[in-house]
């Protein structure tokens, strides 16, 4: 069942069109990522879904309620982590969560336990009585995510949740988000312009200039961007190319390597090496990335891609 249902959504600011006829839906329990460069309309869309931005036309239903007609009902059922921090730094971690629990009408009898559990979940239980002012950026973010989940929302909105964090903090944060998703079954709706973050999602919507230009699983996206390739480094490239040709594989030369597009690279690699014979010095498999997918769909690289953000993400955290 769809928890987020967006139909022909449009948002104009004067003559500018921020969101241009967007339609999509997010199923319950799904992790859905909005991928796009800054200014693509991600934040405006999330603003509409969180009842903060009034759409020009079209409709958006979140957790069963229309965002324009019943904003209060929507707000009670969603958790939001904004791009910029919205904690009170003069309060302690525990006070921030308690404040939130009251604002979201968590029954008094459950408050203490929920707050303690939430702090435990993000590994801040021992910092409960510390002022948020003393927290690092990563800790503050974790606290915000704990806060966003405190009232058991049906959907957790994360608007660029890891912006401004160092790679290591981003990794631990994502592990946290994924663990919480597992444990609470909450639907996660996030926006990002980091490819590797989008890669952990069940489904991705690529948004550019206010329009959704592609919608699918990360695997589907990559598949659409092109096939897998095996790259071979050989002593005699032209000889090897001829041998591959004879075995029925087309190849091209790129940067001193033979590049062979194949259906299933892991199975094809031994056969290719066998076909070429003893000339192979090294071989590697290359799968199309989401970067390739983005390039494929939009015809250009993602703008202002932050270089530092792409480093240091271990492969393991993707296998949630």
């Amino acid at each position: 069942m769809a928890v987020v249902e967006v139909t022909n959504l449009q948002k104009h600011y004067g003559a500018t069109t921020a969101v241009d006829d967007v339609t999509f839906s997010v199923a319950g329990g799904e992790v859905f990522a909005f991928l796009g460069p800054n200014g693509a309309g991600k934040s405006t869309t999330i603003g509409v879904l969180c009842t903060l931005v009034r759409p020009t036309s079209g409709s958006a239903v979140v957790a069963g309620y229309d965002v324009v007609r019943s904003p209060g009902d929507v707000r009670a059922r969603i958790g939001i982590v904004f791009q910029e921090t919205t904690l009170d730094k003069q309060l302690t971690a525990e006070e921030n969560l308690r404040f939130h629990a009251v604002l979201y009408h968590v029954p008094r009898s459950q408050r203490r336990k929920r707050v303690a559990d939430a702090l435990e979940l993000v590994g801040l239980a021992d910092r409960a009585r510390d002022l948020v002012a003393e927290f690092s950026g990563g800790m503050a973010r974790r606290l915000e995510i704990a806060r966003g989940l405190l009232h058991s929302p049906q959907v957790l909105f994360l608007d660029e949740p890891t912006i401004g964090l160092d790679p290591q903090t981003r990794t631990t944060m994502w592990e946290g988000i994924m663990r919480m998703r597992r444990e609470t079954g909450v639907t996660v709706f996030l926006t990002t312009h980091y490819m590797d973050e989008a890669d952990v999602a069940d489904r991705i919507g690529i948004i550019d200039r206010g329009r959704i230009i592609a919608l699918g699983t990360p695997a589907q996206m990559r598949a659409a961007a092109g096939s897998e390739t095996v790259e071979l480094e050989c002593t005699d490239r032209s000889g090897a190319a001829a041998a591959l040709q004879a075995a029925g594989y087309a190849s091209s030369e790129q940067a001193g390597r033979l590049v062979v597009p194949v259906q299933n690279a892991e199975q094809a690699m031994p056969r290719l090496i066998a076909a070429v014979g003893g000339q192979v010095l090294s071989a590697r498999i290359k799968e199309p990335t989401l970067d390739d997918a983005f390039l494929h769909y939009t015809g250009r690289e993602i703008r202002d891609q932050a270089a530092e953000g792409r480093a240091g993400l271990p492969a393991g955290w993707r296998n949630r």
Binding site: Y104, V106, Q110, S152, G185
Partner: peptide, 12 residues
């Protein structure tokens, strides 16, 4: 630690 999920009787 576990946050009660949305599958529980709606607490909100």
């Amino acid at each position: 630690a576990q946050l009660s999920g949305r599958t529980e009787a709606a607490p909100t």
